[in-house]
Nucleic acid binder design. Structure first.
Length: 392
RNA sequence: GACUCAGUAGCUCAGUUGGUAGAGCACAUCCCUUUUAAGGAUGGGGUCCUGGGUUCGAGACCCAGCUGAGUCA
């Protein structure tokens, strides 16, 4: 039997993960990590990590396994929160939780686990693992969780083989209701606890409030782009010379539309966003088509079907390409089809990845809504996550 | 200066032959969701420009005024 450090958070998923490992007879240690101390915003109901830690400890006691707390807030601040602010500042939309897994749970936290002589680190993620032999080398595969509604493989899309080799995902074979059921049967204190949401570890905080801790408000114009304008730009054939136009967001200019309102800072908005524009008087809702943080302009379009909301492809720079399956890494000049995800909980979409000297060009069979720079794209073959990269 | 049209929720407007008001958007809350979005549900909101008049009763009819847009000179 192996020695396993299970990261427990005070939620059901990690509690049940711990229980299952215990049942399998592993030598278990529960480790709770603190990643954020500050209380931000004046959200009175915001629960602090102390409460989570308390409940996590109750779970550990119930399962009769040793419980420890480790404070990783310094790392979290430096490697996740700072990145997040920097990305927003630059006009991109980051995914802090993907970074949290790569930089914290499967790095700093894994290091801590190693101090307990752990063979593995387990988490409550809804995903699965398996191995294949390729030329005598063991390759770890990251697979989607069995519950299609809860699959969290996307959040682990930036892990490498080293990290994956140490990971265990005990709930990946289960459906969420089954996890709840087990928790209830075992009388775990987390059985009926509401799932966590919001940026992991920072907690239930209103994102705009959180961003305003660091980013200054800066009033600027909201400009509406007529649907007819975007329509004209779209009659492009999918060919290599058109990749740039098809795979980058259109560089709108102020004279492409008319000023219809004011915003409090272009860096607070993301493509596809509807809420928070504070502009009424239209027949259909307005959605953000793009932002320009240099000129501090937010470009919007009216209606779900505004052509400017949809794009045929996206681009990932060579340096931002990450292959979990490094044995499947493509050569420059190659083209392959994958099932592609452009953000968490987005259905997989068929598309072709063409790697050329400039980088990776992803062309979808169908236009995608709200492709946003800074988010991660992840490509799959069936259930398996093959690689991921930052959308340019 | 004359004439025409308009003035109803934060915004854009609808309100039939007069019976104290509605829709979309916006906003709020909740649901969904370990990113950002989206989506779903619910909800708060109006001295119907002002002052008179007709009427049992006016957002609607009449008169005057104010404001805005336009047309003509």
């Amino acid at each position: 039997m192996s020695r396993v450090v299970v990261g427990i958070s005070g939620g059901v998923d990690s509690s049940v993960a711990a229980y299952l490992l215990k049942e399998q007879g592993h030598d278990l240690i529960a480790l709770f990590m603190v990643n954020w101390h500050e209380r931000v915003g004046n959200i009175t109901s915001a629960c602090t990590w102390e409460e989570d830690a308390l409940i996590a400890e109750m779970v550990a006691k119930k399962l009769d396994i040793p419980f420890h707390i480790v404070d990783l807030s310094k790392d979290y601040k430096k490697r996740v929160v700072d990145y997040m602010f920097a990305e927003y500042q630059a006009g991109r939309t980051p995914n802090p939780d993907v970074l949290c897994n790569r930089e914290i749970k499967f790095d700093s936290f894994l290091d801590e686990a190693m101090k307990f002589d752990a063979d593995f680190v387990a988490t409550g993620h809804y995903c699965r693992k398996s191995e294949v032999e390729v030329n005598g080398e063991t390759i770890h595969r990251l697979l989607a969780g069995k519950d299609p509604n809860k699959d969290q493989s996307y959040f682990l899309c930036q892990l490498n083989q080293q990290q994956l080799s140490k990971a265990m995902f005990p709930v990946g074979e289960l459906l969420k209701p089954e996890v709840r059921e087990i928790a209830r049967k075992q009388n775990l204190p987390t059985a009926e606890r509401k799932d966590s949401q919001g940026i992991c570890f920072v907690g239930k905080v209103d994102l705009p409030t959180f961003l305003q801790q660091q980013l200054e408000p800066k009033p600027g114009n909201v400009i509406e782009i007529p649907a007819t304008f975007s329509e004209k730009k779209k009659q492009l054939e999918v060919s290599e010379e058109n990749y740039r136009k098809l795979c980058f967001s259109f560089p709108y200019k102020p004279w492409n539309g008319k000023v219809i309102g004011e915003h409090q800072g272009a860096h607070f908005y993301t493509i596809g966003q509807r809420k928070g524009l504070n502009i009424g008087g239209h027949k259909d809702p307005l959605f953000v088509l793009g932002t320009d943080v240099k000129r501090n302009i937010v470009y919007v379009g009216e209606g779900q079907n505004h052509p400017g909301l949809h794009r045929k492809g996206l681009f990932v720079a060579h340096d931002d390409m990450h292959w979990i399956r490094h044995d499947l890494k493509m050569e420059v000049g190659e083209k392959r089809t994958f099932d592609i995800r452009i953000r968490y909980r987005q259905p997989l979409e068929k598309g072709t990845l063409h790697l050329n000297k400039d980088g990776a060009w992803f062309l979808f069979d169908n236009e995608q809504r709200g492709i946003t720079a800074g988010q991660f794209t992840a490509w799959y073959l069936n259930d398996e996550l093959i690689g991921s990269g930052v959308i340019a």
